[in-house]
Design a protein around this nucleic acid. Sequence first.
RNA 1: GCGAAAGUGGCGGAACUGGUAGACGCGCCGGCCUUAGGAGCCGGUGGGGUAACCCGUGAGAGUUCGAGUCUCUCCUUUCGCACCA
Length: 864
Amino acid sequence: MEERYDPARIEPEAQAFWTEQRSFEVEEGAEGDKYYCLSMFPYPSGRLHMGHVRNYTIGDVIARFMRMQGRNVVQPMGWDAFGLPAENAAMQNAVPPAKWTRDNIAYMRNQLKSLGFAIDWRRELATCDPEYYRWNQWLFLRMLEKGIAYKKTGVVNWDPVDKTVLANEQVIEGRGWRTGALVEKREIPMYYLRITQYTEELLAALDSLPGWPERVKLMQANWIGKSIGVNFGFPYEIDGQKHLLRVFTTRADTIMGVTFVAIAPEHPLAQRLARDQPHVAAFIEECRKGGVTEAEIALAEKKGVPTGFTVTHPLTREPVHVWVGNYVLMAYGEGAVMGVPGHDERDFEFAKKYRLPIRAVIDVNGQTYSSDAWQPWYAEYGTLANSGKYDGLDYQQAVRAIAADLTTLGLGGKQTVWRLRDWGISRQRYWGCPIPIVHCEKCGDVPVPDEQLPVLLPEDLVPDGSGSPLAKTPSFYETQCPKCGAPARRETDTMDTFVDSSWYFMRYASFDNHEAMVDERANYWMPVDQYVGGIEHAILHLLYSRFWTRVMRDFGMVGVAEPFMNLLTQGMVLNEIYFRKDEAGRLTYFNPADVEVQRDEHGKPVRATLLADGQPVETGGIGTMSKSKNNGVDPTTLVKEYGADTARLFMMFMVPPEDTLLWSDESVQGAFRFLKKLWKMVFDHVSEGPAQALVTVALDGPQRELRHLAHETLVKVSDDISRRRKFNTAIAAVMEFMNALGKFDDATPTGRAVRQEALELVVLMLAPIVPHIAHTLWHALGRETAIVDERWPQPDPDAISRDTLEIVVQVNGKLRSRINVPAGADDETVKQAALADANVQRFVLDKPVRKVIVVKDKLVNVVV
RNA sequence: GCGAAAGUGGCGGAACUGGUAGACGCGCCGGCCUUAGGAGCCGGUGGGGUAACCCGUGAGAGUUCGAGUCUCUCCUUUCGCACCA
């Protein structure tokens, strides 16, 4: 064994061993229950970033740990290879997105390999490969046949200068990112997937996912947004025809407080009224300004115009004025809302602004209502007042009575509505999966026949930022109608990349099947046992995948409905930001690696200077690693300098996986130091020659104590990794044990045997986290097997059991003493021992003891 | 604006089911060693106090024998909001 820890030498050796042994190439039905460990596949943006390293390290630790538990573990990897950044890069460098993407994949694959992840690389896939995306097209056509996919218009961001559709990301403060032109909303035809058909199931099934974080389930539930309320119509007449202006409300109890109705600018009635009212038309036109995001609409100033048109209140028969409001969303409910300014804050603001009447109709504990200023209690539930025959009813009674009356009148009734909208998948972009439709003048929209799939995406185009290149490439869009053979135009929209990521985890199982999308192997591996990925995917990607899997289940293609049994959402990787400002106010950012921090005698940072010139730099706080802030750390540099194991150990030790991780060079060095210490400890031990076999009956006190600690540590580490997923405390426990082991200087043959066992346990416990050094040290300790094939050790109950326990004694809840009692002593014995303690007596003095609380094996509290 | 979460030493964090606040690591201080290193080893390190002790988990209230943990209000930060992935 070498004396010096040299990761650059041992890591490639370990990796070569795993590759030669095909350690991670797994087959269905091999020994042990299957375990599918999946990390969200990366977008091939160029280089791996630290977020990737963290994500895949977490997944890898779990995969290797489960493998040591004897499970048949698969951990695949692939590339979410379609998307906008490839088009941007293409525009910048005049390189086709396909080449850019494939080059990136090649580079990033090598980066991943240098980190030693236990991946079955045979299963690798890229979503831009026709062998993959053909199945997007194939399933889309099946959905079209079943009516799950359909066509309707949708609203998009429109850049009037570039004459192109913009992604939300490309709209900066209401303007197109390249042109600076004010963005408009525009309606275009698009394909949708009927996810709303599955709302009830997607919501209810969240309860069947105990392995998901509560907050993610809550976010999904809120996103799906089930509300039970009342849908009813305000009758009106226009152009000699009778209509109902339908609204939905969860507060039907406030119906007698309606003083206006607000409708969305896109509402058919608004469009109709605009025909003869120029100011309404002008307002609707004005509402087209700005982007389409919900946040933007919600933050915009609430504006409206009166139409002069009235509808009839369904219960009072009084006329109610109709307004067009920019805050009413056409996509939710009926695109119209009843205005109850007395009990809804948004309506209140709106009424104040336009001097509309405000009526209080709910009595909340007799509090005095004033229409001068909004009070939060106005929106609370209470008893109805000023509501005629409904006076005195509570919320539930009122809703029941009002809904019944509306039903009798034929004007409405109870209804369940969902916030979730159908999933629009059409994108007016090049670098995505073509939608397999042909538009024929005679036959309409014709699906591409299965035998013509895949519709291949040409790979040699370079976008220029003004519209999709596909729409400018006749060799792509010129085709014949599959039905009548006449010249026809191919659909040039591509699919949302969320489509690609909604089922890739099933394709890994059937990666080499060219005849079918998935096969029975998917049923062996699915569902994913552990999914690891960023919290930013908590809603969309996970919800779409849950939907898509259900569609495939309903088509009889897979047996499961829920794709991911356990979910771990890892936090982001942040770093410090340093900059200087020049006279012109321009900011120059400096990489934290080039900055030195000076500290006072307490270790508190006082100032930061640039290493290059020794001059001060300003601190810009903490932010995600990004090119623009120049605060990224390159994984490859890190691996070159310290090795993959140090990178992995650092990531896992700093914080729990779900927390944000603040980068720290000092802590990286700390992780490296720990591995050096471990190496040296094994080196010193094995330099004395092989240890004899351990005979546990003949141990002295310190030897027994060390064994006790070793096996207690094993219990804690096992629990931390398998149940709690708290790798940081698992590592801390090993460190704590190593500190004790460092002080254990027993050189007798028995002492050396105890140390041998301790070191083997340490190496086994660390093997999932730092697999390379574990691989080498296992051999150094005289073991001939490969540690990657070893089983997780079992704690020895004899080593763990104890004769006496230390119990904490409090007086009035404050720690005053500690006492030793025999293990398993009854409460009365413990109580008497506590009261007899000198320190306790000092605090009790002559005060009467009111109560003594004994918490078994832990604590006594004497209350005086 | 709506939805979700998080605030603990100089720093990252620990405290798992309401029961010892600060494990472990970093930084800092002191010492040792030496081939003077971005090396290693030993000790100390929340604040106040000579000490006994007292005070301390974003702010304020509450429940409890006991609150970092539970409840309410407020403040701050982070994530998501449907065309970024």
